[in-house]
């Protein structure tokens, strides 16, 4: 049961993080297309925000690991 919960949880976490990072990528690409001269700044901000989302996703992943191991 714990393993099942962990698997489903990890899947949902991946979906959420995927949507989040996808939105960031969309925004960044659109901004770069609009303002190619600011692409360096936009890329930095994009990577940083993506890392934040990744952090949130990993919180979920940790919970899943706890469920799977416990």
């Amino acid at each position: 049961m714990g393993l099942l919960a962990a698997g489903i949880g990890a899947g949902i976490v991946a979906v959420g993080a995927g949507i989040g990072i996808g939105l960031i990528g969309k925004g960044a690409v659109e901004s770069i297309a609009r303002q190619p001269e600011a692409s360096a700044d936009i890329r930095g901000a994009m990577i940083l925000t993506a890392a934040f989302i990744e952090g949130v996703a990993l919180f979920g992943a940790i919970i899943c690991i706890i469920l799977a191991l416990g």
Binding site: L58, F59, A61
Partner: peptide
């Protein structure tokens, strides 16, 4: 807490 978990989870994963 978030700071610790973020770094740990990223490196471990």
């Amino acid at each position: 807490f978030a700071l610790a978990i973020r770094l740990f989870a990223n490196m471990m994963s």
